[in-house]
Amino acid sequence: MGSVRRHVQIDRDPDTVWRLVGDLARQHEWFPLTTCRVEGKKRWITLPSGIVFEEDIITHDHSLRRFQYRMVGNPAITSHLGTCDVLDDGHGGSIVVYSTDMEPEALALVIAGAAGEGLHKLKTMMEAA
């Protein structure tokens, strides 16, 4: 199992950050995706290469500020759980943590790279606003 994690500190309060991160149809605004489409407990994301992933939304908890999802319907992905948490950093800001556990493990590294880029962009966007 490939288990990876990236995080970023953002000088904005967690509720403000969660308003964007917790809007699952807007993840393409900060993550390297082309589109996101949400229907109930399902989401479809399109990557810039044109690949579409179908996801089950497992957790979408506004009080915890936690989002968890699972990639499904892709025979190459035998196991997956993605988790994004927005935490209070104790100083008025936030820490956003993006974790992925998946098989094939090689793909976990790729997701981690994208998450790193996405979190960097999220910080830039939030702190500029």
Partner: peptide, 17 residues
């Protein structure tokens, strides 16, 4: 830059694709 790049984050892959 890495080859395995479905997110097309890297210029080499964008240039090629």
């Amino acid at each position: 830059e890495p080859f395995l790049d479905p997110f097309l984050r890297f210029a080499e892959n964008r240039i090629g694709s």
